Amino acid sequence: MSDITIRHNPDRERFEVLDAGNVIGKAAYKEYDGGASPQRIFYHTVINEEYGGQGLAGKLATVALDETVAAGIAIVPVCPFIKKFLTKHPEYSANTAATTPAHPEFLNEPSPRARA
């Protein structure tokens, strides 16, 4: 690994792993306001294949979930990786919202940017 960093890119609704400034992984989400409090639906996490096996997905998930909790936003795990990560990290359970049928429906709606 060379210059690996993780950042939040709210304009693209994702947390990103970068190697020397190039995006090599992401945890994508959509903000959802259909409950008692704001929620962040994590729906896709990926690390480029050539960076596999270095623990980057776990580091990405930790940063993404820590920043989500710090912002007072509930975690909604739709992404299989995030779901599995949460089973191994019960410290996030108080900040996790159960996935409901409304969450996948919301994910399938066209984004406001796509309609504009």
Score class of each variant (00 low, 15 high):
Asn22Gln: 15
Ala61His: 11
His103Leu: 12
Tyr29Lys: 01
Pro112Gln: 14
Thr45Lys: 13
Ile6Ser: 12
His8Pro: 04
Tyr92Arg: 15
Arg115Cys: 05
Gly21Asp: 06
Gly58Asp: 03
Ala57Met: 04
Pro77Lys: 00
Ala102Lys: 14
Val76Asn: 03
Arg115Tyr: 02
Val63Ala: 09
Ile73Lys: 08
Ser37Tyr: 04
Glu16Trp: 06
Thr62Asn: 07
Ala97Gly: 04
Pro80Val: 12
Ile73Leu: 08
Leu18Arg: 13
Arg115Gln: 08
Pro38Leu: 14
Ser2His: 13
Thr100Cys: 06
Leu65Trp: 15
Glu31Phe: 04
Ser93Ala: 13
Arg115Ser: 05
Pro77Val: 02
Cys79Ile: 13
Phe42Val: 01
Leu60Cys: 12
His103Arg: 11
Glu13Ala: 14
Gly72Val: 14
Glu50Tyr: 10
Pro110Gly: 13
Ala114Cys: 05
Arg7Pro: 06
Ala116Ser: 10
Pro80Glu: 10
Glu67Ile: 12
Gly55Ile: 13
Ala27Tyr: 08
Asn95Leu: 08
Arg40Ser: 01
Ala64Pro: 01
Ile73Ser: 05
Pro38Gln: 14
His89Arg: 12
Met1Val: 13
Tyr92Val: 13
Val17Glu: 02
His44Asp: 04
Ala36Pro: 03
Ala28Met: 05
Asp33Glu: 07
Gly34Arg: 12
Pro90Cys: 07
Leu18His: 07
Pro112Gly: 11
Ala94Thr: 07
Arg7Tyr: 04
Ala28Asp: 02
